[in-house]
Design a protein around this nucleic acid. Sequence first.
DNA 1: AAAATGATGTCATGGACTGTCGTCGCCGGC
DNA 2: GCCGGCGACGACAGTCCATGACATCATTTT
Lengths: 187, 187
Amino acid sequence: MRWQPNARGRLEQAAIALYGESGFEQTTVAEIAKRAGLTERTFFRYFTDKREVLFSGSEALKTLLAEAVAGAAASASPIDAVAAGLKAVALVFSGRHEYARQRGSIIAANAELQERELIKLASLVSVVTEALRRRGVMEPAARLAAEAGIAAFHVAFERWVDQTDQKDLWPFIQETLVALKTVTAGH
Amino acid sequence: MRWQPNARGRLEQAAIALYGESGFEQTTVAEIAKRAGLTERTFFRYFTDKREVLFSGSEALKTLLAEAVAGAAASASPIDAVAAGLKAVALVFSGRHEYARQRGSIIAANAELQERELIKLASLVSVVTEALRRRGVMEPAARLAAEAGIAAFHVAFERWVDQTDQKDLWPFIQETLVALKTVTAGH
DNA sequence: AAAATGATGTCATGGACTGTCGTCGCCGGC
DNA sequence: GCCGGCGACGACAGTCCATGACATCATTTT
């Protein structure tokens, strides 16, 4: 075999390790590649940019979310369909609390990474909006339900990451959705 | 006088013009500086990066928003205080519809710019959250009201930009807030 | 066994950003 | 009025991210 297997995985591991050890800005792509036993050029064949290493999972999340929203009970209201989607997403994170925490602290330390995180969340909003539209929800309700749901998810996720007791993400999302409902009601 | 006045303004004008003419990625900082009669190095003395030119106004928006939320009637609910803040912001955009449209189309054409736009919106969320906290609103209500309000603003702003008839932004925000309330109510 | 394929390396280049230092008008103290 | 500091800018060199073009070579196909 001419090359070691799983080049992508090695790059990913090397990158996350270095981002954690030295910080995102301080680590160069050349260093990542070297630790993975590859070249800088090869890094960019697997990841479009230095940030994308930390976000490659988001594609799978999009399809999962889209399908779960689409598959919600036909009788479910828009926001409940979104909630069903978020529940499916929450399941994926069970047992990944520690990973989410590490990744979160890397991202929290760098503005560029926060930008990327936000655009990934925005792409989730798009996907959910589209799924709701297919369920027959009209604009702007579809977009707003998606925005509200993803915002709740975001807040709930941060709260979940910031504590150690509760393993499951879903209860956090549920609580947050209820709180959101209360707050938008206006009294 | 050794140099022409208003270096910053000239850079801003040059940049926006070039971004509009040739696209954001295609225009180099060297070109911008040259058109402004300055050097690349000077560009980076005024703007932290190539994108920031299009977002320098957001700082003023933050303070305006914070003060308007803080200054809302003491009896106002959290979401109404946010709405009061958004109303103040909306006023700023009266008469800037055309500018908003141009700027919006530049941003829509480039993912990096969308990332920056999103982080600026996120910073508005932070500011509003903080203002609500000072009003005595507890977490997570403060954060959620801020997220919901800014999401509504975002949606309303896009709708406002995408049409030509209605000059005022505020009615769009009002409608969107009502729609959000309906959608989060869940039926 | 020759040819196509695919993963990687090598080389070269452009462009964003940064550090450093030099220049030179301007301004305040004296 | 002279002088030294200050502020705004230019000049220059350097780093790193990112990408294109092409070479290499094991594996697979035919």
